[in-house]
Design a binder for these strands. Sequence first.
DNA 1: CGTACTCAGATACCGATAGTATCTGAAAAA
DNA 2: TTTTTCAGATACTATCGGTATCTGAGTACG
Lengths: 202, 202
Amino acid sequence: MAVTGTRVTRAERQAQTRERLIEVAREMFLSDGYAATSLDKVAVRAGFSKGAVYSNFAGKEQLCMAVLDSIHEEQIEGVVTAFSQDTDLDGRIEAFAAWAREGLGQPRWTALEVEFGAIARQSPYVATELVKRHREIRAAIAELVRQVTAEAGLGDAVDADQAATTLLSLGIGLGTLRSLDSTIDVGVFADTMRALLKTAKA
Amino acid sequence: MAVTGTRVTRAERQAQTRERLIEVAREMFLSDGYAATSLDKVAVRAGFSKGAVYSNFAGKEQLCMAVLDSIHEEQIEGVVTAFSQDTDLDGRIEAFAAWAREGLGQPRWTALEVEFGAIARQSPYVATELVKRHREIRAAIAELVRQVTAEAGLGDAVDADQAATTLLSLGIGLGTLRSLDSTIDVGVFADTMRALLKTAKA
DNA sequence: CGTACTCAGATACCGATAGTATCTGAAAAA
DNA sequence: TTTTTCAGATACTATCGGTATCTGAGTACG
């Protein structure tokens, strides 16, 4: 065990390398898309060679999956904090809508998500991993819906699972359209949410 | 002008070649996706060489655009016939829902649509062409909504343009999820449509 | 007819990129 | 100090989109 000189172990260095690669890959995947981003460029921009990528990830797909996981973490955090602000139904819907406006608008993460989803047809790995994550996300949304409707005194008039599927689909669709055409009105997100809940009330 | 012997002109042969290429490309793009389909394989499976592709299309993007147009033609035809069956509101919603179930379920055209959409970030050609088509489709849906709500005596209580954006987004999102996970319930499509209209009624 | 021209499609090539095989040098183990 | 290990570098392969060039059958024209 070296007491002085080298302060970092090999495992620590590798962890740093891995994180740095994910960081750079995230920027490039988001700005240029999955197909248009080459592993060589990612590695060089991170200060390494392509060998470092393959030494830390099984391949491009696994690197992108790690990037998506890092994005999901932040995204979930954003939704949760948006929901824990107000306490009444309309306030929460508006907070959610605001998050959607920001999340679906500027950054192109839905575009990346969806481009990467196309890979799933050729790769069983990507298919199973993405399905797993989609189900987790849908379950989380359903749980939020259940919580919100319960506190708003709607009882179980709303099918939370169906609502979750609708909201996730709408988010994916709006994000996809929005990334092509910035004139798309993301406000329909909140309107649809309201419509779903008000129908249940009647 | 040759009276006997060669019965087809050069232009006719080329048109046939073009159609055959679109036909084969459509099959392969739909089953394997855009990126995973090579122009060489398309050409060979159509009985030609890659040269035939570049002699009929400016590139892979233009070939795919031609494929998408051929798909859109059929899809629009499907929606129109679905809508011209019944005359009452619920019947039309159900007809639309049935079309959505079929269109969004089995074939993977939304996945292709959306994978190709990712190309738009790198290609101004694809971006402008896709935006043009999306706007046409949204306008067509809006027109259908206007027609249906008018005949159902809802007046202009429903914002047809917003409804069109919602329905198109929902269709894209559901199709995307569905192409990955066949357990996704496409029924929410009709439910959302009903919710949107019923809210307007109140 | 027959000669010259045109152009759809074939062939050959280039550059980029995902992935593999191999190498190297420093950290870890002995 | 010597040996082993392995993160990351280097070198190479295969595939694919795209370009340049060629060719021969169909076309116009004398």
